Amino acid sequence: MTKWSGLDHRWLVSFACVAIALILPIAIAPATPAGPRAVVELFTSQGCSSCPDADRIVGELARDPSVIALSLPVDYWDYLGWKDTLADARFTARQRAYSAQRGDREIYTPQLIVNGQQQVVGSDRAEIDRAIRASAQQSDAMSVPVALSREGNELKVTVPQGQSGASGEVWVCAIVREVPITIGRGENRGRSVTYHNVVRNWLKLGDWHGEPAHWNVPLENLVGEGVDGAVVFVQNGNRDHPGTMLGAALTTLQ
């Protein structure tokens, strides 16, 4: 039988403690939560017979913590016999601005924009997933870790230091997470559709030029019409020429 001297024993204990100290942090260190990898914007309409499938898919994406999904109902199908109760002319203008920026005439419903870069048919889940994966390969897309939180009667927005030359506009959107609608006339007559993360208002907070920036947004500027959530996004370009989504965050208000 091998005998250990007192010195040997102390050395062995010390070695074991060092080994445990080296291994333990790796084993118990909490994972750093990943930020969202995509902002998807669905241009939809209650008067579009092809849209309910896309509205359902946006509901699925809204439950994915790696995606911020927004519904932006447009107003150009209102003449078909049913006036969209959620439509906003500003959403129609945004869709047209994306088309002008791309240099095409692709304006339709359901159209989904991924990270301000790619447009796909909003009812094609496979194409949506492919576009999200492709956008993730772009170094600037969703590269800015925006922070958003509620403190009392304010939203706290923080945009950190960016890469050299980074710039964009910072916007806050007031959203309603679920809006059930029964459609009385038009192509979807008699159908009940639930719309998810419907934008009800948006405000420009300011311009970001790559330096750390902070905003305090009074909730009274956002609440109303059932609003129960908020999204902040940083987007390259401007309202008339929207570019790549650089970062975004979402929080609930209720």
Rank of each mutant, 00 (worst) to 15 (best):
Asn201Gly: 13
Trp215Val: 03
Pro212Trp: 08
Leu222His: 01
Val179Glu: 13
Gly186Asn: 05
Cys173Gly: 01
Gly190His: 09
Thr158Gln: 14
Ala166Cys: 06
Trp202Asp: 11
Ala174Arg: 07
Lys156Ala: 14
Gly210Ile: 07
Val198Thr: 15
Ala174Asn: 09
His196Ala: 15
Trp171Leu: 11
Ala174Phe: 05
Gln163Gly: 15
Ala166Phe: 05
Gly165Asn: 14
Ile181Ser: 06
Thr194Lys: 07
Val172His: 03
Arg177His: 14
Asn221Leu: 14
Ser164Phe: 05
Ala174Pro: 06
Pro212Tyr: 04
Tyr195Pro: 02
Val144Lys: 01
Asn221Glu: 13
Gly206Ala: 03
Arg150Val: 09
Val193His: 02
Leu148Gly: 05
Leu222Tyr: 04
Arg150Ser: 07
Gly206Cys: 01
Leu203Phe: 00
Arg189Ala: 15
Arg150Asp: 05
Val157Thr: 06
Arg150His: 08
Leu222Arg: 02
Ile175Tyr: 06
Ser164Val: 12
Pro180Asp: 12
Gly184Pro: 03
Val193Asn: 00
Trp202Val: 06
Ser164Arg: 14
Arg200Gln: 11
Leu203His: 13
Pro160Ser: 06
Glu169Ser: 11
Ile175Leu: 13
Leu155Gly: 02
Val170Met: 05
Gly186Lys: 04
Val159Gly: 03
Glu154Trp: 06
Ile181Glu: 14
